[in-house]
């Protein structure tokens, strides 16, 4: 293999590397060949000494990926690190499976924290005037009337000013009335459900046991926001540790592969 062939092979194997990096690498090899020629070797001898250009390209690519990741820590760059190492054959199933599992767990965990924050935001927003509807806590004094008929079932929701909500359901199985508590007045009788068929069933729709609705809302707002933020931080911390460990492990893997 002569110089042109060697350099072309490196170039074609590094097609997806940023141009400035590629130019630098090619210039490195140009320099190496010219120094080698000056010391009296032939192009073939130098190319043989350098080894397989495809293998060199893979190693360089993996190193460039890690460099990109260190410069700019984005998910895309991490993905490229993983792909670069996979190409080197240094990512085996023993690593990939636990990693995948950890990633799934972590994703779920992120989901929980986001959900908590959303609950917190919704609860906090319900304090703002006009946004009370974000959370279904009824401290709105405006009357409401809503009727819907679907599949032979009629649902009617009414709320009179200053009172709880009435939900009236009519279907072929009978009718049902649910009356909720008036959110503003905690001394109200708990809402009841009366099954019109036999009049025997009672259901209580009330605040969480031992808490008033405003308390529940306050706890949701503060707990959701702070708990969610805290959990998110914990997640970020775990992610950081995982990624660091992963990059370290990956590096060790391909150093060994390089035959040092």
């Amino acid at each position: 293999m002569n110089k042109a062939k060697f350099i072309n092979k490196v170039k074609s194997s590094l097609g997806d590397v940023p141009k400035d990096q590629l130019d630098e690498i090619l210039a490195d090899y140009e320099e190496y060949f010219s120094d080698g020629l000056a010391s009296g070797r032939t192009e073939e001898e130098i190319a043989k000494g350098l080894g397989d250009p495809a293998k060199i390209a893979k190693e360089l690519r993996a190193e460039i990926r890690i460099q990109q990741w260190q410069k700019k820590k984005s998910v895309g760059n991490l993905g490229r690190v993983v792909l670069g190492l996979a190409a080197l054959g240094s990512l085996n199933l023993f690593l990939a499976i636990p990693m995948l599992l950890m990633m799934i767990l972590l994703t779920a965990s992120y989901g929980v924290s986001v959900l908590l924050i959303l609950v917190g935001l919704a609860a906090s927003a319900s304090y703002l005037p006009g946004l009370g509807g974000l959370m279904q806590i009824d401290n709105d004094k405006t009357p409401l009337h809503f009727v819907e008929e679907k599949n032979g079932r009629k649902i009617e929701i009414t709320r009179e000013s200053g009172h709880g909500m009435n939900i009236h359901i009519e279907s072929s199985e009978g009718t049902k009335d649910i009356q909720t508590d008036d959110a503003d007045d905690d001394d109200d009788e708990p809402g009841t459900v009366v099954d019109s068929n036999n009049g025997m069933m009672h259901m209580v729709l009330d605040d969480l046991h031992g808490f008033t609705l405003p308390q529940v809302r306050a706890v949701s707002a503060v707990g959701g926001l702070f708990g969610g933020a805290f959990w998110l931080l914990v997640n970020l911390w775990v992610t950081r540790i995982m990624i660091r460990g992963f990059v370290k492990y990956a590096r060790l893997n391909y150093s060994i592969l390089r035959g040092e």
């Binding site: 397989d52 060199i56 360089l60 460039i64 035959g259 040092e260």
Partner: peptide
């Protein structure tokens, strides 16, 4: 050593 090892190694040292 394989001479080709030098550039990936130098790049890592640079990194």
């Amino acid at each position: 050593m394989s001479e080709g090892t030098i550039y990936p190694l130098m790049r890592r040292l640079q990194n």
